[in-house]
Design a protein around this nucleic acid. Sequence first.
DNA 1: TGAATAGTGTCTGTGAGACAATATTAT
DNA 2: ATAATATTGTCTCACAGACACTATTCA
Lengths: 275, 275
Amino acid sequence: MKEEYSSEEEFLKNYDPRKFDPIAVTTDILLLSVSDKDVGNYRKLTEKKYSLLLIKRDTYPYKDKWCLPGGFVKVDEDLDEAAKRILYRETNIDNIYLEQLYTFSDPKRDPRMRIISSSYIALVDKRRLDGKIPKNASWFDIHLIEDDKGYYVTLDNGVEEIKFTVSKTLKEHTTDRYKFKIEKNDKIAFDHPLVIISGIERVKNKAEYTDIVFNMMPDLFTLGELQQVYEVVLRKKLLDPAFRRIIADKVEKTEKMKTGGGHRPSVLFRYKRRK
Amino acid sequence: MKEEYSSEEEFLKNYDPRKFDPIAVTTDILLLSVSDKDVGNYRKLTEKKYSLLLIKRDTYPYKDKWCLPGGFVKVDEDLDEAAKRILYRETNIDNIYLEQLYTFSDPKRDPRMRIISSSYIALVDKRRLDGKIPKNASWFDIHLIEDDKGYYVTLDNGVEEIKFTVSKTLKEHTTDRYKFKIEKNDKIAFDHPLVIISGIERVKNKAEYTDIVFNMMPDLFTLGELQQVYEVVLRKKLLDPAFRRIIADKVEKTEKMKTGGGHRPSVLFRYKRRK
DNA sequence: TGAATAGTGTCTGTGAGACAATATTAT
DNA sequence: ATAATATTGTCTCACAGACACTATTCA
């Protein structure tokens, strides 16, 4: 194993990358957004639903199952570039918020070979993608219930319903981190239910102390709409005055108003970068 | 590229893992702890210093430079297992807090070949490792200065001093994340300065809302000692009463006292798991 | 006009920051 | 006795939670 070389150049000349077991690296992207559901009553606001993009697989393995957009990392690109490229391939748009989530590495997570996958979170205003996603892709609304034991998820794209369950247990020697495990799942490929849950939890946490939520907003929005999106991401109702106080210095008022609902119109705001 | 198979089994039988460019995956571990520095005055408390474990490389590439403990992931183990194995190899102890940090993937980060590295943070009470680390490993105290532009780091193991600089810039489409870049470095191998900075920042953030700091404490400790460790990790002084209020429900009093300093003895506490 | 949301005012309790005061040891 | 840390008390201010109230639109 240990050989002697007189210089780094010489060492590298003799280095054989093929002597290792083949491992592949992929990137999977959890693209999250928020949809508007018209609630019927002309006076009521549209209801907001968390949604994610899935792709129907047309090749093995997991043929005909749904999976996150993903692909192999090329030898000359880093993970961020790979994620960006794959996201562009699926959405035809650029400039989407991207953040590395976690690297999943169960040796059996892919039946083909040893594949390690670095997952990414992408956040976008869904309307930017209208008419741009490929035929084999579809937005699913997320319905999520959490209890002490885990997460019970239902995904719905209007045609098909997907259910899965992920359990959580505290890791050893850790005070706050959960280890997730897929308990029930028959329509999602690979370990992607884990990616989905991890990502939703990450966004929830970061929404508390960063401005990531704004990545899912259009340029102009009302504070009511913004609050709805926060409520979807945080999975809880917020009180109006408290919410307005908290985001006051993150937004700025514009001259425009949103009218048309059967109620008082509201001022449109835009995101203001802090400091 | 697209071939037709009648079943997943048939597809897998024909799958050739060698057709991809070879990529290797490694794990690098940032092992952090806190050292006691005797300050000379018998009355004063020992000063606490943040410290990390580095290994002197005796092979190419980066021969004679210092690096984080690390190694190739085996084909049948996941990243957590790899990190655990490598950590055991370097410290001869088990049961160390481990948490995946980030996956670094610059195509040029290793001159040998394309190597993607998932880094881990490990936290430990340094005294558990007394006399257990190998000869080519050494604890370095961390002296870190941060400003708007980046981090200026000096590492010191009592014999040798290592300096490096890492700059930070806000990423596009991101509100809070920095992109780190090595500006000056001639004694640390690979991109490990980035791992060091990312890890120190991660621990700092998580110290605010989790109990990870306790992983660097012995079973019994005084509140003064605990506060010192928090101060090292958070890089700021804390006020005694506020600190005691905050950690009150995370610790429990024991019968024992710590005596021997030229001042009032203090009660020894232990970590109390919450809820 | 009334249903519905938009937006504001304000009280209250909690908790962090700040500082002061007291307690206790080894030398 | 003194230097040093340990520990507690308490005041104040900021701010989140809670609730009430006013404003405004359009079918």
